[in-house]
Nucleic acid binder design. Sequence first.
DNA 1: GACATATAGTTAGTTATGCAACTAATTCAA
DNA 2: TTGAATTAGTTGCATAACTAACTATATGTC
Lengths: 151, 151
Amino acid sequence: MSNNQFKRGELYSVINGMATTAVARRLQKNFRNAGLELTIEQWSLLYHLWKEDGLSQQELGTRTFRDKASITRLIDNLEKLGLVERVASKTDRRINLVCLTLAAKPLQQITYELANQTMQEALNNITKDEIEIVKNVFQRVYDNLTSPDLI
Amino acid sequence: MSNNQFKRGELYSVINGMATTAVARRLQKNFRNAGLELTIEQWSLLYHLWKEDGLSQQELGTRTFRDKASITRLIDNLEKLGLVERVASKTDRRINLVCLTLAAKPLQQITYELANQTMQEALNNITKDEIEIVKNVFQRVYDNLTSPDLI
DNA sequence: GACATATAGTTAGTTATGCAACTAATTCAA
DNA sequence: TTGAATTAGTTGCATAACTAACTATATGTC
């Protein structure tokens, strides 16, 4: 039996990830209070596009850990909001490049500020070392479950 | 500025919680492969009922970090599957006690085994100390966002 | 006892998720 | 160069999430 075996009573709290759920909910609430009509899921796509505009839907899915059907619909909704548009790739006609519109520009600063503020509320009294450990563990857990030899 | 301020490029990965999402997806897959027609959300309620049968919907919501509307529908679906039933409380007619049926009994052992196996896949190469730190950080983050004086 | 307030649960509306099946475009290989 | 396999994206279906508005029961105060 592995050393890592969980006691039964501890299984759920780890799988559930209530902490990340709570952070997401708080961020959504802070968006709403600031008058932003934007879900955090939509924002998570914008976040990656602000870092690098014109990503394909596939690439957005990879970076945000979603399947391509989810991306299709999130982009649909962002297009309805006028924040992005699909631009057909000239080199590969299968690909849609997702490009930010001018309307998305003013959201970048305010949402970064709200996100930072939310993280500060959430991470009050958590040390940098602890944050590093959590991030590192998350990455390794993710790798454990997605490395090709396991799938 | 707080010491805990995230670099912008790091915000998303923490909020997203891709690791817990990946664990949940893997567990769902392992359920499906074992022929179990049960979502992990439904299982999470059963999990708490196996620990303590006859909880109210409100209490189930508290323990699984869900709002009461979500619990209503999860219980609806579990009832359709014949795994639980609502029993009106005799002391307070507002309350439904959620009780396991006989049909739920055989699921307990197999789902615990699948959950343990999934956690072992996920936590391969993660040390006990790291797990303790993650759990502790999760709890403190949750507390930061739900303590009454902040809401 | 009566009225205001709080609590438990349900319902309606919107968004999001995953899987599977599908179309269209591209690449690879005989 | 043609036919198989792969890749990008969409659509249909089912489940689940949150908010807000609602009903019914319980509690507390005058």
